[in-house]
């Protein structure tokens, strides 16, 4: 367990909790941006450089710009705090969240304690990946050979989404 990953995980968890409790949407958007950048750092630290770059460019670059742009376009200011209106529902929701987290954490810990030895390992060990020319090369090769149909379908879905967004934004509902 390395120290930089611990620091990144701590900052990311704190930012996520701040995002849940923040009053103004712009604070939440900036906290989400921080979480995404910290996640990209975690990807880079475990050696997934391609995914880290895509995370930075697409998530932290494009999607967050869309969010901040629409917050500024709609001129959203501080909303009244959602939690003060109905504190009972809020406490109930926090209890549900804690139990869900406890359940997932328990199953993760049990899995790593009991079943980590009988896992079927793939062929892409770190040695093989570095022999084949690095993480980005291996991933791109898989993307354009083994998964090329999925890649084309995804690009079609992106085109449909762009056209749909334009149609939705131009239409006036009366």
């Amino acid at each position: 367990m390395s120290l930089p990953i611990i620091i990144l995980c701590l900052i990311s968890a704190i930012l996520a909790v701040t995002m849940l409790f923040a009053k103004s949407p712009i604070t939440s958007a900036l906290c989400l941006l921080g979480v995404l950048i910290m996640t990209a750092g975690v990807y880079g630290l475990i050696g997934e450089h391609m995914i880290a770059t895509i995370q930075l460019v697409v998530y932290a670059g494009a999607i967050m710009v869309l969010f901040i742009f629409s917050i500024m376009l709609l001129n959203l200011s501080n909303s009244e705090n959602d939690f003060k209106q109905k504190p009972k529902i809020f406490i109930f929701g926090l209890a549900i969240g804690l139990s869900v987290f406890a359940f997932i954490a328990n199953s993760i810990l049990t899995h790593f304690q009991n079943h980590s030895s009988d896992r079927q390992l793939g062929i892409f060990t770190p040695q093989v990946v570095s022999d084949l020319g690095g993480n980005s090369k291996v991933l791109s090769h898989a993307l354009f050979s083994q998964f090329y149909v999925s890649f084309e379908v995804i690009s079609l879905a992106l085109l449909v989404a762009v056209v749909g967004a334009v149609v939705l934004a131009k239409r006036k509902i009366d």
């Binding site: 869309l66 992106l158 989404a161 749909g164």
Partner: peptide, 9 residues
């Protein structure tokens, strides 16, 4: 990315 574009519009 596609979902957030549609959702924001």
């Amino acid at each position: 990315a596609a979902e957030s574009a549609i959702g924001l519009s």
